[in-house]
């Protein structure tokens, strides 16, 4: 492999790890908005636990991405000093909290996706990434238990909660296509034995999601083919607002320690 090819591969590797890192970070940041405002005190604690796990995953993954990149950027440089187009999180993660049904639905769709991803990555050819995935997998199993439980309560609860849950599923479904659409980065990492075949993970995710929808008495929306590309840095308008808030202090006081 010549130097250019090696640089390309490193870049793809960094981008791949950043996708995982940013997805956890952005989702954790969104959950952080709930704390103190949840529907019940016990749920404040539950959502905070999810947020803490996700931010913990983001820190491990960002640090690793920074090391792979080799330009001296640590977890905070990557989290607080990149612009929206440099964030490679999937588009679903940045969607606003909305009502509790939206938050739960977003969480549940991503938990089910992270379950597949981390399960596959836990045995991948990159030992560092495999170790992070193995740890994250345990956390994600609980996240999925939490979110799927709530999806069922909301779907099979009152007429109002069912209406809200179905509205959330209808609204967010269009972002799920991105989760299983491989691009050149995914393919390249797959060739090195690091990334799983995204398309091959879809049936298992689909079965799980369908079963939850059935128990929750909710309907799976029709496929909506518009292709979102958050993982390539093309986001919805929501992300830059989220970053403006999250990065406020680091941007205002360049170079300061906190």
């Amino acid at each position: 492999m010549n130097a250019d090819a090696r640089a390309d591969e490193t870049q793809a590797h960094v981008r791949y790890v950043l996708r995982l890192a940013d997805t956890s970070l952005i989702l954790g940041q969104r959950l952080g908005e709930w704390i103190g405002h949840a529907p019940a005190l016990e749920e404040d604690l539950g959502l905070a636990n999810l947020a803490l796990d996700l931010i913990g995953q983001a820190r491990l993954l960002l640090s690793y991405a920074g090391e792979l990149e080799g330009r001296g950027r640590d977890e905070d440089a990557l989290a607080f000093l990149r612009e929206a187009p440099q964030f490679l999180s999937v588009t679903l993660a940045e969607q606003p909290n909305g009502d509790f049904a939206h938050t739960i639905t977003r969480q549940w769709l991503l938990d089910a996706w992270q379950l597949e991803m981390y399960q596959a990555l836990a045995g991948c050819a990159d030992p560092r990434l495999a170790a992070i995935a193995a740890k994250a997998l345990k956390e994600t199993r609980y996240h999925y238990r939490f979110s799927s439980g709530w999806l069922v309560r909301l779907g099979d609860g009152t007429p109002e909660s069912r209406r809200r849950a179905q509205a959330a599923v209808d609204e967010l479904w269009r972002f799920t296509h991105e989760l299983f659409s491989p691009d050149e980065t995914d393919e390249r990492m797959r060739a090195t034995g690091i990334a799983p075949d995204l398309a091959a993970l879809e049936p298992s995710w689909s079965r799980r999601v369908d079963e939850d929808l059935r128990v929750a008495t909710l309907t799976r929306p029709a496929a909506q083919p518009y292709a979102w590309h958050g993982k390539r840095g093309v986001h919805t308008e929501h992300l830059s607002h989220l970053l403006t808030e999250m990065q406020h202090l680091q941007r205002t006081y360049p170079g300061a320690s906190w």
């Binding site: 019940a40 016990e42 539950g46 636990n49 309560r153």
Partner: peptide
């Protein structure tokens, strides 16, 4: 103690509240 709607939720709340 804690409040929960059902037993599954009670286990989750117990985990989130009492085993942090």
């Amino acid at each position: 103690s804690l409040h929960a709607a059902d037993s599954r939720m009670a286990i989750e709340h117990a985990r989130d509240v009492y085993t942090r």
